[in-house]
Computed example of a mutant assay.
Amino acid sequence: MDLLIIESLEAEVMQWLESRYAIRYAPELASDPRAFRQALYNVRALIVPPSVTIDAQALHYAPVLRAVGRVSAGAENIDLDACSRARVEVVRGLTATAQAEAEFMIGALLSMLRRVPVVGSDGMLVGRELGAATVGLVGMQPSARVMAQMLAGFGSKMVGYDPALHASDPVFERWRVKPMGLRELLEQSDAVCVQLSYFSRYHGLLGERFLPFCKPNQVIVSIAHSGLFDEASLADALNSDRVAAAWLDSLEPGALDEGRPLHGIENLQITPRVASTTRESRLRSAWAVARRIDEMLGATPNATRTFKATMPGEPTDLAAEPQLP
């Protein structure tokens, strides 16, 4: 079998793949790990949802697997190191969700700055304007580039930090973002947007070492894995009003349970990973993943159309997609 698809795809993308490969569409395998592993023996490529784990054990059952596709945002369910050892490429549309994520963060900032008041110079409780804010970008991901473009339109000042980039990296100048250390960024920012890719070495990065230095009345929006935050330190910052409000679009199960630090905190808002999930972003991501898998596996003789292969990090022009019957 060429391709096993467990995550639902847009109809036109599915038809495009079916015209080229032997495909099995089996969403029921997402809830049956044993059957899923048994189905991997002759599979050359996979497209999986967030609920399906790809680790060393699963890869053991997939001797001819070459690619694992991920249409939805994030890759926490995929062991990237195990895939690298097995020479299995993890295929994602890295820029496909940038616009959706940036729009979400802008909306969250506007909401928090206006809805969570501060004391003005005349003693009145008032909201704030995004255009007058210094916005800190933690993680120079594709969504941060779109954020920088949008924030420039508001007139916001932008500062940025990424542990994987040196302050002299040209990306900061290109995106018109002033590089800073993480503590300095938190000290100077009225609003902070976190979109840093999660690795185990970053677990708890935003914790007691940095959060106590947040600028008073700061607001934080995060579309990153919640493991970047130390729960107790975030709870302390929110309860002390040093952080006026936080909005997390991803939170590990049970983090709000009674007895956990974030339980019952009123100025913390949680959404279930909706930042990246739009009709447009899913279509862009599905095309990027499908095209890269097609490039890797090679078109079959029954393919009748020509196409331009698209790397996962390359924006897709949807208007130029092939028209399917």
Score class of each variant (00 low, 15 high):
Gly259Ile: 09
Pro212His: 00
Asp190Ile: 10
Leu182Arg: 00
Asp236Cys: 10
Gly254Glu: 04
Leu238Asn: 06
Leu251Glu: 01
Pro261Ile: 11
Pro170Thr: 08
Glu252His: 14
Trp175Val: 00
His263Ile: 04
Gly254Tyr: 05
Lys178Ile: 14
Trp247Asp: 02
Glu231Leu: 13
Ala191Ile: 03
Glu184Tyr: 02
Pro216Ser: 09
His263Gly: 07
Ser200Asp: 15
Ile220Gln: 11
Ile265Asp: 06
Gly227Cys: 06
Leu268Asp: 01
Glu231Ser: 14
Leu262Ala: 13
Ala237Phe: 05
Ser222Pro: 06
Cys193Gln: 05
Glu173Arg: 15
Ser222Val: 10
Cys214Met: 08
Gly227Tyr: 09
Leu186Tyr: 06
Asn217Thr: 12
Pro179Lys: 07
Pro253Val: 01
Ala232Asn: 12
Pro253Tyr: 02
Leu205Glu: 02
Lys178Trp: 12
Ala246His: 02
Ser197Gly: 08
Gly227Phe: 05
Ser226Gln: 08
Pro170Tyr: 11
Leu256Asp: 02
Glu173Tyr: 05
His263Trp: 10
Arg201Cys: 08
Asp257His: 13
Ala224Trp: 01
Leu182Thr: 00
Leu205Val: 07
His263Ala: 13
Phe213Asp: 11
Asp249Lys: 07
Pro216Val: 07
Leu268Val: 03
Pro212Ile: 00
Phe210Asn: 00
Phe172Met: 04
Pro179Leu: 08
Asp230Gly: 05
Glu208Asp: 12
Glu266Met: 11
Leu268Met: 03
Gln188His: 14
Cys193Glu: 03
Ser197Phe: 13
Arg183Lys: 15
Val221His: 03
Asn217Tyr: 12
Ala244Thr: 05
Ser250Ile: 04
Asn239Tyr: 11
Gln269Ser: 15
Arg260Tyr: 11
Ser168Pro: 03
Gly204Tyr: 00
Ser200Arg: 13
Val221Asn: 04
Leu248Tyr: 00
Gln195Asp: 07
Glu266Tyr: 08
Ala245Gln: 07
Arg174Thr: 12
Arg242Lys: 14
Ser240Val: 02
Arg260Gly: 08
Arg176Cys: 09
Arg242Tyr: 07
Cys193Met: 10
Leu248Arg: 01
Pro261Gln: 12
Ala244Gly: 08
Arg183Asn: 13
Val177Gly: 05
Asp249Ala: 12
Asp230Thr: 01
Lys178Val: 14
Leu205Ala: 06
Leu205Ser: 02
Ser197Tyr: 14
Phe199Asn: 13
Gly204Asp: 00
Ala245Val: 04
Ser200Cys: 08
Arg201Asp: 12
Ala191Met: 11
Gly227Asp: 13
Ala224Leu: 05
Met180Val: 10
Val177Glu: 06
Leu211Trp: 02
Asp230Cys: 08
Ser250Asn: 13
His203Asn: 15
Glu173Lys: 14
His225Ser: 12
Phe210Tyr: 06
Arg242Ile: 06
Pro179Glu: 13
Ala245Thr: 01
